[in-house]
Write a protein that binds this DNA or RNA. Structure first.
Ligand SMILES: [Mn+2]
Ligand SMILES: [Mn+2]
Ligand SMILES: [Zn+2]
Ligand SMILES: [Zn+2]
Lengths: 137, 137
DNA sequence: AATTGTAGTGCAACGGAAGTGCATTTATTA
DNA sequence: TAATAAATGCACTTCCGTTGCACTACAATT
């Protein structure tokens, strides 16, 4: 609990009660989280607050946003030491077509791609879709 | 013009006037197209028709859908001979942060990734973001 | 040519999700 | 304690994708 407060403070995010709860919720999840998920988990809180919390977290490098192709923005905690704010920590994400969950594969970095003349890459997003470990057994 | 009709027919899509126009429009574009783009180009036609045309095209392997991370679905014509319907023709896409346009880099295939035990990949999406060739000069 | 059926089109409305303006509450600091 | 700033809540908006249902154009069949 104290660690969460510290983590937030380190990142320039004031550790309010709500923020700590959301952080905790995300830390306990194995999968990427959408705003709707948080909304369901904290029905008492207002959507806007949750929305802005996620945005603040993202901006301060506490979480990174994930576009898994479902059309819903998802988020996951950043690893300690990752510097998403500056340059993306370019790991890939896996989206399961069966259980519809998305996970970070933080060990799997996005390979270097050499682009045609004139193209300058600043960021990359790689999503693999298929059957996840849980669903394949 | 006749080629378009033929192409559509080959793919099991009846070549109506509207469909031919949309195909032509997409063929003349260098970049990926969103529904809104088509809407603007053909103000007289109804959104639904355009929407369903894209869906039909997609389903019949005339176009492929592109998720470039902007939250808007885009489409581009498939290459002749590509078999999107069965397995994705896994080329990468580039989205320009400056002009907001997205292009297919059909020559650049998505590299093979070896996933952890238990994960089975069926599809992949790789989007690079940065400055495009036109905007970098 | 008239009839029947199927595929395409148009209109209207819905629903999810992201986002914003402004008032109110809570925390910080002077 | 008073003044100030930050966080939260409420209401409302916009954008995009999507669907149901009625109507129309087309093609096949008699
Ligand atoms: Mn991740
Ligand atoms: Mn493409
Ligand atoms: Zn799964
Ligand atoms: Zn550009």
């Amino acid at each position: 609990m104290k660690e969460i407060e510290q983590r937030l403070t380190e990142n320039g995010v004031r550790p309010t009660a709500m923020r700590i709860l959301i952080y905790k919720y995300m830390a306990e999840s194995e999968v990427a989280i959408a705003l709707t998920d948080i909304e369901n988990a904290f029905a008492k809180a207002d959507r806007t607050t949750l929305f802005r919390t996620l945005k603040t977290f993202e901006q301060k490098g506490v979480v990174h946003q994930i576009d898994d192709g479902t059309g819903v923005q998802k988020y996951a905690l950043c690893e300690t030491g990752c510097n998403c704010e500056l340059e993306q920590d370019l790991h890939l994400h896996f989206h399961c077509n069966n259980c519809n969950e998305t996970v970070c594969l933080t060990e799997h970095k996005i390979p270097n791609i050499n682009l045609p003349e004139g193209y300058v890459a600043e960021d990359a997003n790689l999503v693999l879709k298929g059957i996840c470990e849980k669903c394949s057994t």
